[in-house]
Write a protein that binds this DNA or RNA. Structure first.
Length: 225
DNA sequence: GGGAGTTAGTACATTACCTCA
DNA sequence: CATGAGGTAATGTACTAACTC
């Protein structure tokens, strides 16, 4: 029904390699050129028969035949041409969604069905979102690692202050008012109250510790608690 | 005005196809 | 040559907003 010529494939690199294959090989087969869909079992054979196609011809045929796949046949996979791919990418940079008019115009321009343009934009949005999620994930991972390190450092510092307090208790006592102020501070995120027992003795330290704690909350929310 | 049904568009999950190592 | 992995077009489903009756 649909002779298989085109090496249908998704990525631009894959597409380019397919184009290269056609450029390198020299024969031609008009019948083979008549399809953009193929079964995997026949792709290579058909490709061999259709080696003399010019790229633009390949692209043109690819698009045309994709429109013919409307007769209930098992689903076949369109291979977007380089030209189609770049135009679509261009439009996607302008706006990630299309209104019906734009969709229709683009479909016409690319010789695709509007539905195919619509699907491409859907999948493209999904890919963008996935990539962004990966980036966010990586960022959160780095934040987590930095916070872990910071936490370790602070714990160590705390231990040092505690041991310092044990060795010089009389000089490190807080004035009553300052101590009270320090102990009443509540973290807005985890609602933990820093009590006197946990606090190191100096107000300066208490302030620094809270500042660091809150800074952690405000810059990297969940990881700090 | 507001509820029910319809339509169109989108996100999301999944499937199916294709290429390549 | 067979096969599994990866990329992506296509499909199915759920949700939402706009519209009509």
């Amino acid at each position: 029904m649909f002779p298989s010529l085109l090496s249908l494939g998704p990525s631009h690199d894959t597409y380019q390699s397919a184009i290269d294959v056609h450029k390198q090989q020299g024969a031609s087969s008009p019948s083979a050129a008549a399809s953009s869909f193929s079964n995997s079992s026949t792709v290579k054979k058909e490709t061999d028969l259709a080696v003399d196609q010019e790229v633009e011809e390949l692209e043109r045929v690819s698009s045309r035949v994709s429109e013919e796949d409307e007769d209930g046949c098992p689903r076949k996979k369109l291979r977007l041409t380089k030209h189609q791919y770049f135009i679509l990418e261009d439009k996607f940079k302008e706006h990630t969604t299309l209104n019906p008019k734009q969709k229709q115009a683009l479909a016409q321009q690319l010789n695709l069905r509007p539905r195919q343009v619509e699907v491409w934009f859907q999948n493209r949005r999904a890919r963008t979102k996935l990539k962004q999620t990966e980036v966010d994930c990586e960022l959160l991972k780095k934040c987590y690692e930095a916070l872990t390190e910071e936490n370790k450092r602070l714990q160590k510092e705390l231990q040092e202050f505690k041991s310092l307090k044990l060795t010089a208790p009389y000089y490190m006592q807080l004035p009553a008012a300052a101590a009270a102020t320090a102990t009443l501070t509540v973290c807005p995120c985890c609602e933990r109250v820093a009590n006197a027992g946990e606090n190191p003795s100096t107000p300066a330290f208490a302030l620094e510790q809270k500042k660091s704690h809150f800074f952690g909350h405000f810059t990297r929310p969940s990881a700090a608690c």
